[in-house]
Amino acid sequence: MAKRINKHPILGERKPKEEVEIVFNGKKIKAEKGEMIAAALQANGIRIHRYTIKNKEPRGVFCGIGQCTDCAMEVNGRPNVRTCVTPVQDGMIVNTQYGLNRNGDNID
């Protein structure tokens, strides 16, 4: 299970940042101001970001730096947002992406 790293021998004590709330698949979860969506999800134990169109296979963070698009989700109604390089905002609505959007209506 994922967790936040509060104590670190090199980076020191983690300074608590202002808390914000985001809505993941209809459920409110806690995040920290300015952190990337993917980090907030990981900290909440969520690591499935989307399912592929054809084979409906799950995908999660793979490159972590915005290059692979595996972490794409539907954010505030916009699909294909790379969550590893997009910071959270209070009240942001984040949904698992099925195929090309949240509903998976592109999947026949």
Partner: peptide, 20 residues
């Protein structure tokens, strides 16, 4: 999900400070 680049894990732990 759970298979990731070593660099991604490094970014997660050292930049985002989340252990994935």
């Amino acid at each position: 999900p759970g298979v990731m680049g070593a660099g991604a894990a490094q970014t997660m732990i050292n930049v985002h400070r989340v252990l994935p």
